[in-house]
């Protein structure tokens, strides 16, 4: 057993809900250090994901994530589109046609997603980007995967991502538009790290 396509669809649905609920919060975070479109973009992107899921219901978790990648890349518009798009695409590629995801392949898919974000955005840990949420999440997921419990992996990832996002508050941005602000970017949470934590929390919520 393990996580199936029902989980994947629920994850994406909960992610869309989270983006809608936190739209204003993400806009506020992005207004402080970016161009205040992150909440808007993510909300629109995940609404497009919901449309696609309704249009062509996927048969495997991998297919659901691939469809998500395409929708986000097409509809988000800002840098978050290709970054999340690449993350979901790489995760989908790792999962392949499998009908069920076990703890080990879940951890591997999360790592592939993070690697995709790093490859696309060229950001490193500590640059005050979504990588600062993803890397702790990937590490926590890998550690939790040893016990073989997918829910435990997702909870560990979500908690680590939330802690990682909070830890971006004091950082000075070195990538993306926030880096133009230099020292003034400190004291604000990175919006991409915040939305990443929401998405990983939704993944855990869908498995509970």
């Amino acid at each position: 057993m393990g996580l199936d396509v029902t989980w994947a669809v629920k994850w994406l649905t909960l992610s869309a809900q989270a983006m809608a609920e936190h739209r204003v919060e993400l806009i506020e975070l992005d207004r402080a250090i970016g161009d205040s479109d992150h909440g808007e973009n993510m909300d629109r992107g995940f609404q497009a994901v919901l449309d696609k899921l309704a249009e062509t219901p996927p048969e495997t978790p991998g297919a659901a994530l691939k469809l998500t990648a395409m929708a986000l890349m097409s509809k988000v518009g800002g840098a978050a589109g290709p970054l999340y798009g690449t993350a979901f695409l790489r995760a989908a590629t790792t999962l392949g046609d499998a009908a069920y995801i076990d703890a080990a392949s879940l951890a591997a898919a999360l790592a592939a997603a993070r690697d995709g974000i790093v490859a696309r955005g060229k950001a490193e840990t500590g640059d005050k980007t979504m990588v600062d949420a993803w890397t702790p999440a990937v590490d926590a997921a890998a550690a939790a995967a040893a016990d073989g419990d997918t829910l435990a992996v997702l909870i560990a990832a979500a908690e680590a991502a939330e802690a990682g996002a909070m830890a971006t508050d004091p950082l000075v941005a070195r990538k993306g538009r926030a880096s133009y602000l230099g020292e003034r970017s400190a004291g604000h949470r990175d919006p991409g790290a915040a939305s990443s934590a929401l998405i990983l929390r939704a993944a855990a919520g869908a498995a509970a």
Binding site: M70, M73, G77, G78, A79, G81, P82, L83, G85, T86, L89, R120, G121, G176
Partner: peptide, 14 residues
Amino acid sequence: LGSAVMTAESAMEF
């Protein structure tokens, strides 16, 4: 600008 490069790279990957 910036994200155009990322979109182009992603499209090439797809």
